[in-house]
Amino acid sequence: MNNYQSIISEGFDLKYCVKGQGQPILVIGSSVYYPRLFSENLYKHFQFIYLDHRGFVKPPRSLKQEDYTLDKIVEDIETARQLLQLKDFIILGHSGHAFMAMEYAKKYPQYVQKVILLNSAPTNSQDRQNQSFSFFTETASAERKKQFEHDIAFLENDIHNDPERRFVHMCIRMGAHSFYDYTFNAASMWDGVYTNMEVIDYLWGIAFAERNLIQSMAHFDKPIFLGLGRYDYLVAPVSLWDSIDYSYENVKKVIFEKSGHNPMFEEPDTFDRELIDWMNES
């Protein structure tokens, strides 16, 4: 059972929970969802702080777009940093949250020792999303495609019955795009996770589409761990990151060969080893 505490930022009740001991790693996303992905072994080495953002909490009022810009998310992270008295910490962003982590690190580099970016494409533009879907169509196995067609057929009905959890239903029904084991059902990972679709639609659909992580990394000199899954069709192909090569001396790029979108969950032993080695050497 996680022990939750709250940070109030402009009326938003952002929950956080702390697990483990050691150097702090702030994980931006859902404080309910993300503790389910990382292994207990990591808590022997580091202190993980799982922090909500505005897309995963009930809104305190009727919202306007200026209530959930990426700048607002960055300032929420800074509010949390001040309250938690973090002075030299690691920030971790997985999937779309990689954009949040990188934006924070760019704005407040004096507090960030290292950055961990997991399972993101360089941009979330519509072009790139189409490219990822085409890659799935061209390269996925027949069995994987058949599983996807079976699962996705339920999505429309899921959304019709429960429109406020559209993001969650999509994540679950996209399992054949998300996991090395394409039969895996991720529904239990999303139990109790609140989603504010107004906020999520803006961040994923507009804010992350306007940014490019490779461009951001080109002007950033702190150590970066870039973790990717070979079978992560949601942000495929991994070749989108080919320009991040040995000339980026501050970046360690690791491709997990038997993972989709969640290598920390799918290959915990390999993931833990790679992360701990990097933390010790960089």
Rank of each mutant, 00 (worst) to 15 (best):
N196P: 00
N119V: 00
Q65K: 10
G96A: 07
N185W: 03
N262S: 15
V199G: 09
L226F: 00
K146L: 07
F148N: 03
I159F: 03
V112K: 00
G22F: 06
V32N: 11
D242T: 14
S9M: 10
R61Y: 13
M174Q: 11
L83R: 12
Q21N: 12
G20Y: 12
K44P: 05
Q129E: 10
G205R: 03
V57H: 05
Y34E: 11
L234C: 14
K72V: 13
E75H: 09
N41Q: 13
A236P: 08
L86E: 04
F136T: 10
S188Q: 13
P35A: 03
H261K: 14
L226R: 05
E267S: 15
S132F: 02
N185P: 07
G229R: 05
H94I: 10
I206G: 02
I206H: 06
I90Y: 13
M279A: 12
E40S: 01
F184Y: 14
I206M: 12
G55F: 06
G93W: 09
W241G: 14
E10C: 05
L83Y: 14
F89H: 01
P223V: 04
T139Y: 01
P163F: 04
L70S: 10
F208R: 01
I159E: 04
L275Y: 01
L37K: 09
D245N: 15
Y202N: 07
L234V: 13
P122W: 02
E274A: 13
N212Q: 01
Y43Q: 07
R54H: 02
P24W: 09
S39V: 06
A140R: 03
F167I: 13
E103A: 15
K146N: 14
H219N: 15
Y108M: 14
D162P: 10
K58T: 03
D158K: 00
R54E: 00
D191E: 15
